[in-house]
Amino acid sequence: MNSYHPKSIYLFKIFHLMRNVNVIGGSGFIGTRLIRRLINNDNAVIKIIDKVPSKAFSDLVTLGDVRSMEQLREAISQNSVIVNLAAEHRDDVRPLSLYDEVNVGGAKNICSIANEKDVQTIIFTSTVAVYGFAPIGTDESGKIAPFNDYGRTKYEAEQIFKAWQADAPDDRTLVIIRPTVVFGEQNRGNVYNLLRQIASGNFFMIGHGKNRKSVAYVENVAAFIEYSMRFKPGVHTYNFIDKPDFTMNSLVANVNRILGRAGTIRFRLPFAVGLLIGKGFDLVATLTGKRFAISSIRIKKFCANSVYDTAIDQTGFVPPVPLEEALAQTVRYEFIESHENEDVFYTE
């Protein structure tokens, strides 16, 4: 069960409780947005801990890999709030052992060092992939049934963090955030690839397009991470979704309208044909060792319903950017405006 407190309590001087904030994996897409929010508060001392430098905040980075206890021991600050964004998450990670080494082993290492450094708050970004191919409307109480190593190892990591919190339940705060697919400006993941196809004019729909998709805008995810830093001791688990959900048909129509075009979809391909094409790419990838944007699992994801519910509204949190505005901002930034020299982030 989620626990929460009245909004008036949450408004109590948040940063008195978070002088040091260590963002593990903070050089990435979500982390960079989060840092942009946090640096506006004079009472927060921000540190990025990542195995790669930050493109935007190089002066805040301490290099460290979650697989290394020694590097974490050197990097993590005493009495800090830890935000763990580090993960292996792509569909095509090789070797598969990296999922366990980073997601599970990393969680163990973070908890060990958190014990040493008197850390009382950990915020962990998990994923709705822990539910697998979930029924429409799955909320935080949904059945855990991951279909891939990413979802499996993320859920195993959740249990490790819960065990850490249970060692001092009256003093420690654990926030587990399970976002659906996250999109936004400068991201080069699956949503961007879809938007690029639509913008190119060469897009064709696979299947009937009536399947619904829950998505999350990166600025809203970062805002909720910041907001959750004020939660009191306990375990707080939330799916993160921006509502209302799009159908694939409505998403394509919206993007076309933002681009000043008709919203109609001209080309459609039956699901069975699309899946066959995806399996063909799988075979070529196996034979050549190359990675392709098309695969059978991505075709299945594209055509499946992926609709979740969340109890976040019970916390009093209000996303700063409405979903349709977030989509419009992203499309304009990527395909109408000029941002050729801006940094980009490659994710799923």
Rank of each mutant, 00 (worst) to 15 (best):
E158H: 04
F57D: 02
V321R: 08
C111T: 13
R90S: 15
F15N: 14
V344A: 09
F292A: 12
F133M: 11
V102A: 09
E88P: 09
Q314N: 12
F231W: 05
V255Y: 01
R36L: 01
P135C: 08
L327T: 02
V83P: 03
R19I: 13
D91G: 04
Y333Q: 06
D65C: 08
F317A: 05
R33S: 10
R188P: 06
P179H: 06
Y150F: 11
N341C: 00
G137W: 03
R261C: 06
V21T: 07
K279F: 11
I177N: 07
F124M: 00
A129S: 15
F133D: 12
L96A: 15
F183W: 08
Y333S: 02
D91Q: 11
K243T: 07
E324D: 13
I76M: 07
E101V: 07
I241W: 03
V221D: 07
N187W: 04
V215Y: 15
I225R: 02
F15T: 10
M18Q: 14
T330V: 01
E348Y: 14
R257G: 08
Y4S: 07
I206W: 06
V52G: 05
G189I: 04
V344F: 14
F15Y: 15
L17A: 14
Y346T: 10
Y155K: 09
I198D: 06
N115C: 12
Y4G: 05
A293I: 10
Y227M: 02
I336D: 07
Y99E: 03
G64D: 02
F302T: 00
P233N: 08
S27T: 09
F335V: 04
S141Y: 13
R268K: 15
F29N: 07
Y192K: 10
W164D: 01
H89L: 14
A87N: 03
V321A: 10
N2F: 00
L283E: 07
V235Y: 05
I76H: 04
V23N: 03
V81G: 09
V252E: 03
I122W: 04
F29A: 00
D171V: 12
R67Y: 07
A56H: 14
Y227E: 04
V191Q: 00
T173A: 05
S112H: 14
L251F: 15
N109I: 02
I48L: 09
N341D: 03
F224K: 05
V102S: 06
G132V: 06
E140N: 01
E334I: 00
D167F: 00
V102Y: 10
T310I: 01
P95V: 08
T32R: 04
G106M: 01
G137R: 04
K232A: 13
N2P: 11
R266Q: 13
V128M: 02
L98N: 12
L85Y: 07
D50W: 02
T127F: 00
E325W: 09
L276F: 15
P6Y: 14
L63D: 00
T153V: 09
G25A: 09
W164N: 01
